[in-house]
Write a protein that binds this DNA or RNA. Structure first.
Lengths: 114, 114
DNA sequence: TCAATATCTCAAAAGAAATTGAAATGAAAG
DNA sequence: CTTTCATTTCAATTTCTTTTGAGATATTGA
C-alpha cells in the first residue's frame, strides 16, 4: 500500500504531461464511475490514437484503471495511487522540519471535505 | 500563492527524474539551511556538470533556491512550492468526491507533525 | 598575484517521449 | 454475418531531455 521511489517516479512522469494531467483531473472530478475514452477525447480535444497513448501511460503508472462497458472503455482515476503519491511527497517532512507539512495541512483544511 | 497548471506541470516534470527527486528529498530532510552543491553531489554520486544541470531545472521549477556562501553555493528546498503542488493535486478532490482527500488526510494524520 | 577549490557553461552525442495518420481489432446492432 | 462504432496498434517523424567532457568563472587563502 505504501509507495516506493520507482512507483512515485512513474506517477510523477505520468502526471508531468499536460494532456495526462488534464485527463487525471477530469477523471478525479468524474468520480468512481469515470468516463468513456471517447468522452475524455471530446472533453480534451485529443485524437483517438493520441488519447489512447496517454491513457495507457496513465494506466501503466497506476493512476487510472479501465473496464469495458458495451462498446466503450470506461476509465476512472485510481484514488489510492494519487493519495499514495501525496503521502510519498510528504513522507520526509516530519523529520524535525514541519515546514512542508504545515502548509500542506492548511491546504487540506481549506478544502472542505466531509 | 496558489499554483496554476503551468507551474504544477513544471514542478511535476522537475520531480519526475530520479536524480532530481532524490535531490529534493535530500533537501527537504536537510531543512531550511540546505546543503552545498558539493555535498549534494557527494550524497548522490553525481558529476558536477550533471548536478548543476539538475539543480538548475529544480530552481527553474521553483522547487529549490540557492545562495552563495563563500566558495560554495548552498541549495535549500522551497517548501512553499512543494506544498502548493500538493494543494494543487488535491484541489479537485472535494467536488463531491472525498475518495482522494480521505486517504491523503489519513497519510497526513499518520505523519506525526507538531 | 598565484594556486586551489567550488561551481557553472556550453556543445555534441545519446536517449526517451510525443504526435501523426493509416490500418487493425473487438464488440454490438441490425 | 455484415456493418458500424469505439478504441488500439504500429511505424515514421519530430521534439525534448539527459549525459558527457572540456573549458570558463568566481572565491578564498598562501
Amino acid at each position: 500500500m505504501s509507495m516506493d521511489e520507482t512507483q512515485a517516479l512513474a506517477a510523477l512522469a505520468a502526471l508531468s504531461q499536460e494532456t495526462r494531467l488534464r485527463i487525471v483531473r477530469l477523471l478525479v472530478t468524474a468520480g468512481p464511475e469515470g468516463l468513456a475514452a471517447g468522452a475524455i477525447g471530446d472533453a480534451l480535444d485529443a485524437a483517438s490514437s493520441r488519447l489512447s497513448f496517454h491513457l495507457n501511460q496513465l494506466e501503466q503508472a497506476g493512476l487510472v484503471q479501465s473496464r469495458r462497458e458495451g462498446r466503450s472503455i470506461r476509465y476512472s482515476a485510481t484514488f489510492d495511487t494519487l493519495s499514495g503519491l501525496i503521502a510519498f511527497l510528504m513522507r520526509d517532512c516530519c523529520q524535525g522540519h514541519p515546514e512542508v507539512c504545515a502548509p500542506a495541512m492548511a491546504a487540506l483544511a481549506a478544502c472542505d471535505c466531509p
